[in-house]
Amino acid sequence: MDRRRDWVGARAAILLPTVVAILSFATGVVNISEAPVFGPLAAYVPRSAQRAAGFTGALTGFTLLVGVFGLRRRLRLGWYVTAILLPVSAAQGLVQSSAVSVPLVVLSLVSIPTMLFNRQRFDRAIDLSTAQLAAGAALIGAQVYGTAGTFALREEFNNVSTLTDAFYYTLVTASTVGYGDVTPNTEQATLFAMSVVVLGTASFAIALGTLLGPAIEKRLSEALGNMTDAQLELFQDHVLVLGYGDLTEPILEELTGAVEFVVITPDTDTASRLQQRDIAVLTADPSDEEPLQRAGIEDASAVVAATNDDAQDALSLLTANNMNPSATLVAAATDRENIEKLRRAGADTVISPAVIGGHLIVQSALGREGMESVADTILEVDDER
């Protein structure tokens, strides 16, 4: 059942469009050059249309990658972009009419039902920071200013007669490429060109900063033993381990290899050590709603709290229960008197290792035989699972 879910779940909805994006770009580049005609539309597709489909297919592949990035963050906008471009990619593959475009068409069509099936999984609105909004506005504003001004002064520039020429000049000037094929002929046009250089390069620099910022943040997160949102958002039917203590390590050993899990701990040193062992970890207070939401509490199948602080565990379980009442909540009580408190906090199961161990030891001390075999039986049953 888990393997079947992998083929139709959120991971497949991200993986398949990624492969389609790569194929679309690759086949588009191949079909721009000479490629043998193939397929049912081969006799009806002019060579010029095939090349145009190859050029636009490469652009579609690149844009699909942007959509996939949105899917990784479970953005609704990413889902719309991908859902629209998958049929476009299939159509471009048909128009390209070459043998190399057959896998593109097939995989694009296969990806569409998977995207529709997982539509509800991608429900997050895009959340842009003030800096990102400012960068986008500056970049668009500079391009509009340069294009409109160049077109208005087109008689004072050589090789500018259309809006496309004006946009081309603005783009190559603002990006500091400057091919030199379009130049101003008057002093007024020269002054305007200088303003385009200043405004354009500034807008590109701001946009570049907003792109590098998340990358730097990712590096810092990894250095602190923290996972990024893009990594956390891929978890599904996983287990959340709230906090870390003496009882937690055996739990992690049992969970490793059996099910996906995420540890939430406020201790940066512990988080760093866990990440070095390839354990998914988030450095935060496990009793706060924000880190639980980032760790996918709404998609978690179970929550475990087993630290040395029963009060902190109770608070963490209470928060988790409020955010996902359907998840199974399990707690380990350090003190026997806190068992009922943990149950009232929402724990479905409360186990006290100290009480269990103490009971077995006392029974053995009183002369009752078989206590050691009871412990061995518990471990054997656990191993047989």
Rank of each mutant, 00 (worst) to 15 (best):
Y145E: 08
G57H: 02
G257A: 09
K341E: 14
A284L: 06
G245K: 01
L234S: 13
T334G: 06
L65S: 05
A215K: 02
S161L: 07
A26Y: 10
D335V: 12
T18W: 11
F55G: 01
A205L: 15
D229M: 10
A202M: 09
E260K: 09
D313M: 02
Y80E: 03
E249T: 06
A42I: 06
I206P: 08
G39H: 06
V362W: 03
L292M: 08
A42N: 05
A189D: 05
E340A: 12
L240D: 00
L318C: 06
A347C: 04
V88T: 14
K218L: 13
F55Y: 04
S175L: 15
M115S: 05
E384S: 12
M115N: 03
S326Q: 14
T63N: 04
V182P: 04
G346K: 02
E298C: 11
A202C: 08
T201F: 15
P214K: 14
V45R: 03
L240H: 00
V241D: 00
V30C: 05
I378V: 07
E156K: 14
L315S: 10
Y244I: 01
G141V: 11
F38H: 11
A49E: 09
V304L: 00
L104Y: 08
A12S: 15
L64G: 06
G180K: 06
D165G: 08
W79L: 05
T268W: 03
T349A: 05
A137C: 08
A207R: 10
S221P: 04
M1Q: 11
I251P: 06
D267T: 07
V374G: 02
